[in-house]
Structures are given as structure tokens and as C-alpha cells.
Nucleic acid binder design. Structure first.
Length: 840
RNA sequence: GCGGACGUGGCGGAACCGGUAGACGCUGGAGACUUAAAAUCUUUUGCCCGUAAGGGCGUGCGGGUUCGAGUCCCGCCGUCCGCACCA
């Protein structure tokens, strides 16, 4: 062996061996227990970034470790290849989205291979290929047949310049993010998936996900937003009625007004006959929707002059307002206001001088007069509420609901925050929705033998809008039902649909259908899913919905797609900038443009100082990215992998640093020298034996828990111990065992050493070393001796020594004798094998 | 506003069920090897007093429980994240 590890040679050599042997191909028919390890597949944006490297390294360590512990591992990789950036590139650079995407995939695939991940590349897929999206179209038709898809008019953000629909995030201050044009609200026919049918299942299912972070479960729970309450009717003075929804029916005797949304049908009708109302409605709609604006927005109301009759007292009339704080798309778009016990209602009531009546006691406050500007929403006893008086809030809710149901003016209902999933996108680069629209027959599904509906390749992006709409021939087809002239649906599916079932396709990919039920069920659910927390809600919720929908229609008997979820932290880096004055964006610097002196940082270009900014997520705009490929070429894949696992706990952010990668590189070389200097010797080194076995067990535990930073620390300790140990048979054995313990993390070096030691086969196929349980037990322990809880001495005693002898040894210690100074201790607490605490 | 997470040396972090705080890495100091540098090795590195032996103080702040608290309880302060006029 050469004395210095040559990563460039070793990386390439072993990557070739793995590829030629198809080492990491997962066998469906394997008798071994199956383990599915998956990292969220990347969007092919151009080049991989450090965040990808960290994500895939974590998954890779787990996948390789599982292989070593006797599992048949499925660890696939693919491309979330549809989406807007490709169309943006097409518009900016005049390239074709498909060409741009496929080139990026080729680049990124090569970059990933360069890192030596144990991936089953034979299952690679890209969602932009008909071989994938054609099956997605079939699933869409399955859902359609099952009644899980419907079409309705919905409001969208329309950019009149780009002639396209914008997501909410793409609307900035009411203007399109690209065009800068004033965004219009448009009503368009859109396809929806009935995710709300599964709202309760998706909520209840969270309870079964023991290996998901609580944080993510909570975020999903809030997103689904279950509210139980009463929906009921007020009779109106104009002869009509209005439905309202409340979660606080108990406070019904505290109501002082009814408020409806500006786009409530009643408000719309009033607006038609009154310019004043129309003006007010317009004013409400003009308000911004951003968080900051909502926070500061004043409550506005318009008294319609109509009154509502209280359901429990026909002589009690409540004014009906149109109010800007009532949302049409939650509940029924109308509420009854109880100012004393709801902050918004209180703000509104104080502004318009409406009565504020206490109906829930607050401590000893029971009087109907409610003081102050802070609503009371806590628990209490019902007061000033006729037959409800004396009940607690929960009982009062039940009582009101049961009376409303008995009298027929309302009923207990559940309202969800979750809305149906609008999947129509007026874009080219997505899965075409397999529907044909016929004037006579309406929406007709594309016959299955005509799938996939392929995207036309001959499109241009020199004019704004969806090229599918203006393509000369693509959309013109005969109606499959009546044979007359018809048009294809030109909308494509939301790309979240593509990522909602890719993990199933990885498990099973027949040509003639989306997946084979039995084969997919062998692998699913995914045992460990790893990705960024930014997907905590949408992607994970949609994937859970798809899986349940497939279960409902009998295609796949799996309820939850991801048994284990781990959300890893970002890779961050220091930033460098110069302020350019008020209202002008900062000028950011790449570290390569700078000189780092001991006390300041200056720009190479002009020698003037530059401010060192916060440590932030690597991003192109802040110029704090580090290209993984350059680093891999410099240090080799193993050093980069090792650094990605070191120091920071995986769920937290990892700060990229030159010193960090240097440290990792040093360690790789220390390992190499250790193996290189292997000498057989005689003699036993019991301490080292124990250290080795404790490390094998500890690292296994840490990898299972994804605590890679702890595994790394344990390996450092072991290597330190081996380096310091004198030659012995134990030391030689430790060095021979070490490659297998580090193999999941630094696989290239491990293979190189394994071969160098003359071992048969690949270390990738080797078994995780056995642990000798006898060596996990110490025969001597260090016992702490405390006086009044303060450490005064330590004693080396045989493990399992009886209390009396431990206590005697502690009291006999010179230091303790001196501290006690002849006085008898009041009490002595002995924790076997741990400590003695003397209370003096 | 609602919900949640987290505060440990110069830095990233470890510390199992309440039992020796600071493992491991980085940085810094001192030294060895070398003509020199790099690499490598040895040693040291929480703070304060002390030549030393030794002692005191230390896990955001203030209390509490306990023989014993980074860990449990109560109250503050700070940072970060998610949702947001959700009735």
C-alpha cells in the first residue's frame, strides 16, 4: 500500500466495481427482510448542492448499514423533473424545457455517482418521461372513476402579461413575480382531487406515525385544521335567512351581531342594488392578504340594516354587518359575533359601539358588563345565559347543539381548514391531464389504450402563455364518445402529483401499469424517508392522500406511505456583503473574491473592507454556495461524506467550513495510515477489546437512530485508542475489524483496505461485525465520591461491589477523611457502580 | 395573535431513567521533526485565585423539589421555526 490514500483513484475504481457487479440492485424476490430507504428525490435544477450531498449521505449510511445487517435494501434515485424552472429557462434562454431538464439530469446523475452512493440506478426514473407520467394519467383516470376527481370553477391569480396562473407565493404585493404586472383574480374551470374526503383519516393516521417528528405531525394537524361546532340559521328581517358556523355555540347568549363575508351571496346581492354596498365590498377586497397587512388591518364593517332573529328569543334582533374579517372560504362565510369571548369580535364591537356581554365567568367576574379590550377565551361557567347558566363550556356546547338539532334550526358539524387539492396548472411542462372536452359530451376521459397523452415536443416559448393552447394540432382530437370535434384539456397536473406516488413506482415498475400491487406491497411502506422540513406539509400530505386513495380503490393495501420520517437540517455558510445604501439591495461576495486577514475581510478587487454577515442557508443569490464537485475532486468522496456526518446533529444545520473538511480529510488519512501500518503481534489488550466492541455496538445504535454525529465521535475515540495502544493481537484484530465499522460512511477507503487485507468479496457485501456481549461489561468502574453533592474524589472499584464495601472505601479515602475532619457523616447515599454521596 | 422547538467553553456539539458537565471535532498556545515549509507527532486549551498542592465559580436569568438538577416543576428573558382575521 502507498502511505497516502489516493481518493481519486480509489473512488473511481470502486464505483466502477459496484456498477459492474450491480452491487446495489434490489431484488424483489430476495428471502432477506426488506428495507426501503429513501431520500426525497431532487429537482434537476442544474447541479447538485451541498444540501443534496448531506441528505443523500445520511440515507446512504443507513442503506449500507442495513445491507450489512442482513437486509435486502431498496435505495433508489430519480428526478422530480417537471416544473416551472424549466419553463423559465425556456423563456430566458430559448432552450426547450425537456432538453434543459435532461441535460441537468445527466450532470447531476454524474455528480451523485461521483459520491459513491449505494443506489439502485436500474430503478431510476424521471417524472417528465411518458414512461412515468403516462401511468400517472392512468391513476388520474382511476381516481376519476372512483369519484375522487371533480371539476369546478375556482379563483386563480392570473398574470395578464405572462398569461398564466400564479401560485400565491408568486404574487408579491399584488404583482406577478416575473412580469411585475398587476395580478387579476380570474374564475377558471379547474380539476380538483377530493383530499377532504380523507381529512379525518389523514388526521387520525398521524397518530400511527410513531417514527415521525412531532413537529411535522403537528404542522399537518394544524394544516388539516379540524373544528367542531354548530352550523345554524338566523331568520332575517328581509324574509331570508343566513347560515353561520361557530365553535362556541355555548356563547350564543353573548352575541351582539351577525357578520358576513364581502363575497357572501347576500352581500353580493345587496351590492347589486346599492352602490354604497358595492363600494364597501370593493374596499374589502382591495385589502392585502400578506401576514403583515392582515395583522395591522383595521376591522371594517357595513351595517346592512337587515336584522337577524336570535334563535332562542324571537324578540332579540341582531344587526347584520358585512365585515372584512370574515372569510368566504372558511366554514359558511358568516359568523355571529360574541365580543366578550372573541378578540376579533371585540375589536369590531368596540369600533361600532355594539353591546359586549359576558356569558362565561372569568374567575369571580360574572357581571354582564364586560370591560377592557381583551376578550376572555378561557374556561369558566356560563352566566347571563338563561338555561345554560351554571354549566361549564363543554356541557353548554352540547346543550345548545342538541336543542338546535331538536328544534331543527341547526346541527353539530365539523369544519376543516383543509381544502380540496386544485391540480390544474396552465403550463406546458407537466403531466397532461388525460381529458378531452367535447361540446356535446362534456369532459370525456382519454381511453386508456390511448395513454400516455404525450406532450408535444415542437413548442416555443417566445410568446407568453401556455404553448399547449396555441399548438396548431395537439389539442384537436375527435371526441372518444361521440366522434365529433373536441379539444384536449390543455392544463397539466400540479407537480406535487408527480411526487405523490414516485416511491411506489420505485418499488415496482412494470410497463403496462403504474405498479404491481403485490411487488409494491413487499417494499412499502418506506422504512426511512429523509428530506427537508420544507416538505413537512404539502408533499407529505399529498403523498399520504394518494396512498390512502389508492387503498380505497383497492390498488394498494398500504395506509401510510412513510413509516419513518427524518427531516434533516440545511447546509449553511457564512455570508459576505456590502451595504449600498437605503433601498438598494446588498452587494454579496463569494469567498473566492475576498482576502481574509486576521482582523478584517477585504475584497480582492478594490482592497476595501467587506462585512461578514450571518451564517445562512447556501444560496446563489447570497453567493455563499460551495460546489460539491470541486470539493470532491480535491478531497475525495469519503472525506466529504465524513464531514457531512460530523459535528452537527443531522436535524440541525451544518455550517460548511474549510477547517471542517480539512479535519475530515485528516481523519481519512489517519485511518489509512492505521491500516497501512498493520502489524500482527502477540498478547491481549483487554481495554482495547472492550473499546472495540463497545464501539461496534454504539455505532450500530447511533446509525439506527440516525445520530451520525455521535457515531462519528465514537469512531474518533476508537481510532485514538488504537493509535495509542501498544502492538498486540487485540490491536491487530481491532484494525482488521475497523474497516467494516467505517464502511457505511467511507465506503471507498473501506473497500480499498478490505481488498488490501486480502479479504474475499466486497466490503459492501460484508456483514456488520458481531459484538461479544461479554466485552460490553466492564469489570472495574470509576465511582464518584461526593460530599454534599460536590465531587471530591473518584475510586476505581470492581464492578458490582457491595454497598457496604463501596461506602467503606469512600469513607477511607484520604481526601474524604480530610474533608470530614473527624466528624461522622449524617447520611451516606450509595448508587452502585456510580457514586457515593456523603451528607456531612 | 396562535402553536412549537431550542438556549451548555472561543466555535460545532456530547452527557442513557435525576448521579463524575464539557466526550469527540474545530480553533488557539507550547514543543518535536525539518536548512525551511507542508504534512505528521507530543502536549495544552471552561472561567477565577494560586509557583504548586489545592480551592472557588460555572449549562440564558430568578425561584423551587431533591442527598444530588444541564436534565424535573414554577416564573421571566432571548433566539429560531410553522400557521395566521379559521369564527
Amino acid at each position: 500500500m502507498a502511505s497516502r490514500f489516493n481518493p481519486l483513484k480509489a473512488d473511481a475504481a470502486w464505483q466502477k466495481v459496484w456498477e459492474e457487479n450491480r452491487t446495489f440492485a434490489a431484488r424483489d424476490d430476495s428471502p432477506k427482510p426488506k428495507s426501503y430507504v429513501l431520500e426525497m428525490f431532487p429537482y434537476p435544477s442544474g447541479r447538485i448542492h451541498m444540501g443534496h450531498v448531506r441528505n443523500y449521505t445520511m440515507g446512504d449510511v443507513l442503506a449500507r448499514y442495513r445491507r450489512m445487517t442482513g437486509h435486502e435494501v431498496l435505495h433508489p434515485m430519480g428526478w422530480d423533473a417537471f416544473g416551472m424552472p424549466a419553463e423559465n429557462a425556456a423563456m430566458e434562454k430559448g432552450v426547450h424545457p425537456g432538453g434543459w431538464t435532461r441535460e441537468n439530469i445527466a450532470t447531476m446523475r454524474a455528480q451523485l455517482k461521483r459520491l459513491g452512493f449505494a443506489l439502485d440506478w436500474s430503478r431510476e426514473l424521471a417524472t417528465c418521461e411518458p414512461e412515468y407520467y403516462g401511468h400517472e394519467q392512468a391513476l388520474f383516470l382511476d381516481f376519476l372513476e372512483a369519484g375522487l376527481v371533480y371539476r369546478k370553477k375556482a379563483t386563480v391569480n392570473w398574470d395578464p402579461v405572462d398569461m398564466t396562473v400564479l401560485a400565491n407565493e408568486q404574487v408579491i404585493d399584488g404583482k406577478g413575480w416575473r412580469s411585475g404586472a398587476e395580478v387579476e383574480k380570474r374564475q377558471l374551470d379547474q380539476w380538483f382531487l377530493k383530499i377532504t374526503d380523507f381529512a379525518d383519516d389523514l388526521l387520525e393516521g398521524l397518530k400511527s406515525l410513531e417514527h415521525w417528528p412531532d413537529k411535522v405531525k403537528l404542522m399537518q394537524e394544524n394544516w388539516i385544521g379540524k373544528s367542531q361546532g354548530l352550523q345554524f340559521r338566523f331568520a332575517l328581517s328581509d324574509g331570508g335567512s343566513v347560515e353561520v358556523f361557530t365553535t362556541r355555540p355555548d356563547t350564543i347568549f353573548g352575541s351582539s351581531f351577525v357578520a358576513i363575508a364581502a363575497d357572501h351571496p347576500i352581500a353580493k346581492q345587496l351590492a347589486e342594488n346599492s352602490e354604497e354596498v358595492a363600494a364597501f365590498v370593493a374596499k374589502c377586497k382591495a385589502g392585502g392578504t400578506s401576514a403583515a397587512e392582515i395583522e395591522t388591518q383595521e376591522k371594517l364593517g357595513y351595517d346592512t340594516g337587515i336584522t337577524a332573529t336570535h334563535p332562542f328569543d324571537t324578540t332579540w334582533k341582531l344587526p347584520v354587518y358585512i365585515a372584512n374579517f370574515v372569510l368566504m372560504d372558511y366554514g359558511v362565510g358568516a359568523v355571529f359575533g360574541v365580543p366578550a369571548h372573541d378578540q376579533r369580535d371585540l375589536d369590531f364591537a368596540r369600533k361600532y359601539n355594539l353591546p359586549v356581554r359576558r356569558v362565561v365567568s372569568e374567575g369571580d367576574k360574572e357581571a354582564p358588563e364586560f370591560e377592557g379590550d381583551e376578550a376572555y377565551t378561557g374556561p369558566g361557567t356560563l352566566v347571563n345565559s338563561h338555561f345554560l347558566n351554571g354549566m361549564d363550556v363543554a356541557d353548554a356546547k352540547r346543550e345548545v347543539i342538541s336543542r338546535a338539532e331538536a328544534d331543527g334550526w341547526g346541527q353539530g358539524t365539523t369544519v376543516w381548514r383543509l381544502r380540496d387539492w386544485g391540480v390544474s396548472r396552465q403550463r406546458y411542462w407537466g403531466t397532461p391531464i388525460p381529458i378531452i372536452r367535447c361540446d356535446k359530451c362534456g369532459s370525456v376521459p382519454v381511453p386508456r389504450d390511448q395513454l400516455p397523452v404525450k406532450l408535444p415536443e415542437d413548442v416555443s416559448f417566445d410568446i407568453p402563455g401556455n404553448p399547449l393552447v396555441r399548438h396548431p394540432t395537439w389539442k384537436h382530437v375527435d371526441c372518444p364518445s361521440c366522434g365529433g370535434n373536441a379539444e384536449r384539456e390543455t392544463d397539466t397536473l400540479d407537480t406535487f402529483a408527480d411526487s405523490s406516488w414516485y416511491f411506489i413506482r420505485f418499488a415496482s415498475q412494470p410497463d403496462d401499469k403504474p405498479f404491481d400491487k403485490e411487488v409494491a406491497e413487499q417494499w412499502l411502506p418506506v422504512g426511512q424517508y429523509i428530506g427537508g422540513v420544507e416538505h413537512a406539509i404539502l408533499h407529505l400530505l399529498y403523498a399520504r392522500f394518494f396512498t390512502r386513495a389508492l387503498q380505497q380503490i383497492g390498488k394498494l393495501d398500504v395506509a401510510e406511505p412513510f413509516a419513518g420520517l427524518f427531516t434533516q437540517g440545511m447546509v449553511t455558510h457564512e455570508t459576505y456583503y456590502r451595504d449600498r445604501g437605503e433601498g438598494v439591495s446588498r452587494l454579496w461576495f463569494n469567498p473566492e473574491e475576498l482576502n481574509f486577514e486576521s482582523d478584517k475581510v477585504t475584497a480582492k478587487a478594490d482592497g476595501a473592507p467587506v462585512t461578514v454577515g450571518r451564517v445562512e442557508k447556501m444560496s446563489k443569490s447570497k453567493k455563499n454556495t460551495v460546489d460539491p464537485t470541486e470539493i470532491v475532486d480535491q478531497y475525495g468522496a469519503d472525506a466529504v461524506r465524513w464531514f457531512m456526518l460530523s459535528d452537527s446533529p443531522p436535524e440541525r444545520d451544518l455550517e460548511w467550513s474549510e477547517n471542517g473538511i480539512e479535519g475530515a480529510w485528516r481523519f481519512v488519512n489517519r485511518l489509512w495510515r492505521l491500516f497501512d501500518g498493520l502489524q500482527d503481534a502477540q498478547g491481549e489488550d483487554k481495554d482495547l477489546d472492550r473499546k472495540l466492541h463497545r464501539t461496534i455496538a454504539g455505532v450500530a445504535e447511533d446509525i439506527d437512530a440516525l445520530s451520525f454525529n455521535k457515531a462519528v465521535a465514537k469512531l474518533y475515540e476508537l481510532v485514538n485508542a488504537i493509535e495509542k495502544a501498544k502492538p498486540s493481537a487485540s490491536r491487530a484484530a481491532a484494525i482488521r475489524t475497523l474497516p467494516r465499522i467505517v464502511a457505511p460512511m467511507v465506503p471507498h477507503l473501506a473497500e480499498e483496505v478490505w481488498a488490501g487485507m486480502g479479504q474475499d468479496g466486497l466490503i459492501a457485501d460484508a456483514a456488520w461485525p458481531d459484538v461479544d456481549p461479554a466485552l460490553l461489561v466492564e469489570d472495574e468502574v470509576t465511582v464518584a465520591v461526593q460530599v454534599n453533592g460536590k465531587l471530591r474524589d473518584t475510586l476505581l472499584l470492581p464492578k458490582g461491589a457491595p454497598r457496604e464495601s463501596v461506602e467503606a472505601a469512600a469513607l477511607a479515602s484520604d481526601k474524604i477523611v480530610r474533608i470530614l475532619d473527624g466528624k461522622a457523616p449524617k447520611k451516606v447515599i450509595v448508587v452502585p457502580d456510580r457514586l457515593v454521596n456523603i451528607v456531612a
